[in-house]
Design a protein around this nucleic acid. Structure first.
Length: 416
RNA sequence: CGGGGUAUAGUGUAAUGGUAGCACGAGUCUUUUGGGAAGAUUUAGUCUCGGUUCAAAUCCGAGUACCCCGACCA
């Protein structure tokens, strides 16, 4: 994409009313726009990040054998009454439509997916099965805060699985944990993200969370560095030592919950009478699990952890574009012409390129490139052109390291 | 939902109760082009409602919005 066609603009100053690093930088760089406390628009660059995250997570969900669906935001009151959550859930958005019908704006989808699956799960032969979606969730947070980390409207991947036995659930449950671990590793969050034991709700002894260490988080966890495992403060009294190796020297750190894994047992299948006919001809309640991963929160967490004093820093896996091509000098000069040729070639080769073709000063362009945080900056200028007639460009990785002059061929070889 | 704070051009900020100013941005023109360039010129503002006062951005009241701390929650 040509940057001259990008309607957003980077700002020199962060908005005065934002304190969170992720909100300040994402707004300054034009990735997001605040509409309400905890409600943001995603602008072209920000939306692309969400899409990258979505695609990455989708890949691993499909690998689990789950099927992608899309459930509604508008949900009937009756479903929420059936589970008792219409009155109990204090952060449920409720609304009344023109025919006095009461509805909920979905904060989660157990109340939809469970009755939905009743139409399709009838026999033990239909199990196990799992469905997932990417959905905007609504939660009437008493206090939205920290930019994308706690919104009233946020994008989430939710996965629901359906089983005959708790052993079968456990097996899938562990597979999901494995998939999450792969996701966080690919995002570069592996070292700072801990599988964490947390309060389990009604049925299981505990649930599992993935907690990423950051001062911007609001949870307190106690980590065992030997096992790369943590205990949420909420169950620390019950598990004072590492549950795996018995380590008594757990380190207390603040963190943000980026994903969770819950054994729902029969809580929802009971409420909606979701049963299957067993091999022996008896009707049994389906055992369910649910597995959330906050996509927009993850985007905020990535900024909190990766960004530096110059701006955003995206890994290649989630960057809105892979290459930031920056041409310096007059827009009709030799460097601009060379950049255009390179831009077209790179696009043809399938690279995602943002070309800063604007008529702006070098300082402005280079500083802005650092703010936007694309992983590879490629500068074309009169200086890089004067190397024996062959087109060379200056390649700089946003994460750090020396700039180096490379040919187009070398650039492509490097990028793979 | 308790407590605290803040509210001035698009953004960031000034202004003893007495002429709303500066910078950035944006527009036009000229000169620039490797680290947020220079000049000329234009543009745009006191959150809402009420009160005090000769006079309110400034004081008072209410409302609204946003931020922070806490409780609650992905």
């Amino acid at each position: 994409m040509r940057q001259s066609k990008l309607f957003t603009r980077a700002r020199r100053d962060a908005p005065a009313d934002e304190v969170a690093k992720n909100a300040k930088l994402l707004i300054r760089a034009g990735y997001i726009h605040k509409e309400l406390a905890g409600v943001y628009s995603y602008l072209p660059l920000g939306r692309r990040v969400l899409e990258k995250l979505t695609n990455l997570v989708r890949h691993f969900m499909l690998e689990l054998g789950a099927a992608e669906i899309a459930m509604p935001v508008l949900q009937p009151k009756a479903n929420w009454q059936a589970t008792g959550r219409w009155d109990k859930m204090t952060d449920l958005y409720k609304l009344v439509d023109g025919s006095e019908r009461e509805l909920a704006l979905g904060p989660t989808h157990e109340e939809i997916v469970t009755p939905l699956m009743k139409d399709f799960i009838t026999s033990y032969q239909d199990l196990p099965t799992a469905v997932f979606q990417f959905q905007t969730k609504f939660r009437m947070e008493a206090r939205a805060k920290s930019g994308l980390l706690r919104g009233r409207e946020f994008l989430m991947k939710d996965l629901y699985s359906f089983h005959r036995t708790s052993e079968e659930l456990k097996s899938f449950y562990d597979q999901v944990i494995g998939a999450y671990q792969k996701i966080f590793e690919q995002l570069g969050l592996g070292p700072t993200t801990y599988l964490t034991l947390a309060a389990g709700g009604t049925f299981a002894e505990y649930s599992h969370e993935f907690q990423t260490i950051t001062p911007a988080g609001e949870d307190l966890i106690h980590v065992c560095d030997t096992c790369h495992l943590a205990v949420n403060d909420e169950i620390k009294a019950k598990h004072p030592n590492c549950p795996k190796c018995g380590n008594k020297e757990l380190k207390s750190v603040t963190s943000i919950e980026v994903a969770n894994v819950f054994d729902l047992s029969t809580k929802f299948s009971q409420a909606f009478n979701l049963t299957y006919r067993s091999e022996t001809g008896k009707d049994e309640l389906v055992i369910m699990g649910c597995y959330g991963l906050g996509i927009s929160r993850l985007m905020g967490a990535l900024v909190e952890i990766m960004a530096d004093d110059k701006g955003l820093v995206w890994s290649r896996a989630v960057a809105p574009f892979t290459i930031h091509l920056v041409s310096l000098g007059a827009t009709d000069g030799a460097a601009a012409k060379a950049a255009e040729g390179l831009y077209n070639n790179l696009i043809k080769l399938g690279y995602e390129v943002l070309w800063d073709d604007r008529a702006a000063s070098a300082g402005e362009k280079l500083n802005e490139a650092e703010l936007l945080g694309l992983p590879y900056r490629v500068v074309v200028s009169d200086r890089t052109l004067s190397h024996g007639g062959e087109l060379k460009v200056e390649l700089t990785e946003r994460r750090g390291g020396e700039s180096r002059l490379v040919t187009e061929k070398e650039l492509c070889a490097f990028l793979g």
